[in-house]
Design a binder for these strands. Structure first.
Length: 413
RNA sequence: CGGGGUGUCGUAUACCGGUAGUACGCGUGCUUUGGGAGCACGUAGACUGGGUUCAACUCCCAGCACCCCGACCA
């Protein structure tokens, strides 16, 4: 991608209306634009990162055999009335059409996925099953805040599983869902702490995945012995750890990046989602639900990976593999060398952002640090004279000189 | 949803009951080009509605927007 033609402009000034690090850097770096409180446009750079995050999630969901679906954001009131949540759920956006019909904007999709399973599930032989989607959700949060961490419109992956009984649900929960979640976070450079939480309205327990960051909006209490945590809601001084019995905890600020719930039969009952067991008897389907806020992860990643100059993306989610800066572009030999390197890397399937703008070197360096592409290449009069280009990792001081003709060395770095 | 705060060019601000100035940014041109270059010219603003007043950006009221703290967070 050529930066001179890309829908991207960084800013010298930071947004004045949000002090959070993720909002400041993502807006200043041209990743997102704020449209109103809690609502953002994802610009090309930001969307690339979001897509990488979602691809990591998607790959793990596919690995555990869940089918991807896409359910509507616009939903009929009837489904919500059926579960009682039309009246009960305070964050539900309710809207009326000009013909007087009521609709909900989906904050979560139990009301759609459960009836969707009716024609699919009829026998114990159809179970277990799982589907997921990655989709835009709407929640009328009383207070949007902290950039992408708490918004009213956001991207989320939601997985739903269907089982014959609670034992099967619990096994899936522990042996499939939790390990898949941990692989997802690890793949994007995050260490997520499994955290016990209350079950909300329909279950005794649930789990959150929390990433420890100083700016985290939650406090968790991590067992010193086994690492399992409890969230603020359920933590009490002196309580024994559920897993190892330990009683020593450390308090840590953290940000929630996932939340999983055993739904049991709450929604299957509402929609009469049943199956016939081995004895020919009808039983309620047992369900579980597993969420990951993918746009929120974008914010959490910035909160975790930045320095005073800007963002430092982990490679797996970086918008590009390399940021190629062309300096001294007025020298035809230099410009040609940069073009050749750019073309050669692209031919190898490497994602490169070429800064071919007519700007001073200083501006390019500063922008490159702000945007945070993990590896920076520089082609300049100075480097071309030596038949080389420079390689520097974002966040590190060392610069390495590589010969232009041996550019393929980059592919293994 | 309770409490608090703020609304003047994109940003940061100044002044003022007599109709708005500066800096940065942004744009164009020329000169520049290894860590946010220089010069020139340009661009753009009083949240909205009502009230008081001869006169309101300024005072009063209402609304709206945004931010912060808390509550909430299937």
């Amino acid at each position: 991608m050529r930066q001179s033609q890309y829908f991207l402009k960084t800013s010298k000034t930071q947004p004045s209306d949000d002090p959070s690090v993720n909002a400041r850097l993502l807006e200043q770096g041209g990743f997102v634009q704020k449209v109103m409180a809690g609502v953002y446009t994802f610009l090309p750079l930001g969307l690339r990162v979001l897509a990488k995050i979602e691809d990591i999630v998607r790959a793990e969901m596919d690995k555990i055999g869940a089918g991807e679906v896409l359910m509507p954001a616009l939903q009929p009131k009837e489904n919500w009335a059926k579960t009682g949540r039309w009246d009960e759920l305070d964050v539900l956006f309710r809207l009326k059409s000009r013909h007087g019909y009521d609709y909900a904007l989906g904050p979560t999709h139990e009301e759609i996925v459960t009836p969707a399973a009716l024609p699919v599930i009829s026998s114990y032989r159809d179970l277990p099953l799982a589907v997921y989607q990655i989709q835009t959700k709407f929640r009328d949060e009383p207070r949007a805040k902290s950039g992408l961490l708490r918004t009213r419109e956001f991207r989320m992956k939601d997985l739903y599983s269907f089982h014959t009984d609670e034992k099967d649900l619990n096994e899936y929960y522990e042996k499939v869902a939790i390990p898949a979640y941990q692989r997802i976070y690890r793949a994007m450079g995050l260490d997520a702490v499994l955290t016990e939480a209350s079950g909300g309205t329909f279950s005794k327990f649930s789990h959150e995945f929390q990433v420890e960051i100083p700016s985290g909006e939650d406090y968790i209490y991590v067992c010193e012995k086994c690492g399992l945590a409890k969230n603020k809601e359920i933590f009490e001084e002196g309580v024994a750890c559920t897993v190892c019995g330990g009683k020593k905890y450390r308090e840590a600020a953290a940000s929630e990046v996932g939340n999983i719930f055993p739904l049991k039969t709450k929604y299957s009952k509402s929609f009469e989602l049943t199956y016939t067991d081995e004895k020919g008897k009808k039983q309620d389907v047992v369900m579980g639900c597993y969420g990951i806020g993918t746009s929120r992860l974008l914010g959490v990643l910035v909160e975790k990976y930045h320095d005073s100059r800007g963002i430092i993306w982990p490679r797996s989610v970086a918008p590009f593999d390399f940021h190629l800066l062309l300096l001294d572009a007025s020298d035809p030999k230099v410009a040609e060398a940069a073009e050749q390197l750019y073309g050669a890397l692209q031919a190898k399937g490497v994602e490169v952002l070429l800064d071919d703008r007519d700007m001073s070197a200083g501006v390019k360096f500063v922008d490159s640090d702000l945007i945070g592409i993990p590896r920076r290449l520089v082609v300049s009069a100075r480097s071309v004279e030596k038949g080389s280009f420079e390689l520097k990792a974002r966040g590190e001081g060392k610069t390495e000189l590589i010969e232009l003709r041996s550019f393929e060395k980059l592919l293994s770095k």
